[in-house]
């Protein structure tokens, strides 16, 4: 129950920030938006599965935030690099691509960490997560396959992120 209330408050706060029904210069308040948001947030809180907060203590570990900030910087660099890479391949007259789906193994365990890693893979150089198998394997679509070896591919695709994500979510 407590989880649902936290979820409700969170979604209601985001709704209020996004619609912003208060106009301070004229003092008017858009009641319609406030009531609609209230109903929508209750629905969201009821439908959503209970999120477990038993690892809540981890949220207060400042070291995680430090690694998260470092990760944002590293990630931004690779995000821009991957975009230039894809832009180059798209605009090149010969379309230099060599696509394929490769399998890589990850040592991450928790759901949050795996989700973060999957999203990082999708947003970085030429790779797109297709599926994840419960025994720790990712299937990744790679726009320019440079190696067939599983270990080599893992090192090239997730080697630079796995360590960070392990530090942030599991360390």
């Amino acid at each position: 129950m407590a989880n649902k209330i936290i979820l409700f408050l969170l979604s209601y706060l985001i709704w209020l920030l996004l619609t912003w029904p208060f106009d301070f210069s004229t003092g008017q308040i858009n009641v319609q938006a406030i009531v609609a948001g209230f109903i929508a947030s209750i629905l969201v809180a009821m439908i959503m599965r209970e999120i477990s907060y038993h690892r809540l203590a981890r949220l207060f570990n400042p070291l995680r935030y430090f690694w998260f900030c470092v990760y944002i910087l590293v990630f931004s660099y690779y995000l821009v690099k991957s975009n230039l890479d894809v832009a180059f391949r798209v605009l090149h007259p010969d379309l230099p691509i060599k696509p394929g789906i490769v399998k890589i193994k990850t040592r991450l365990q928790t759901d949050t960490a795996i989700t973060a890693l999957a999203n990082s893979i999708t947003l970085t150089p030429g790779t797109l997560t297709v599926d994840y198998r419960n025994d720790g394997y990712f299937y990744v679509h790679w726009i320019y396959v440079t190696t067939f070896s599983q270990e080599e591919a893992a090192a090239r695709i997730i080697g630079r992120f796995e360590w960070f994500i392990h530090k942030i979510f599991e360390g």
Binding site: A87, L95, V130
Partner: peptide, 17 residues
Amino acid sequence: LPDVYNRLQAATKCVTL
């Protein structure tokens, strides 16, 4: 780009950034 998967690559990366 030729197929669904390659197109998704361009669609997600470039459009997200």
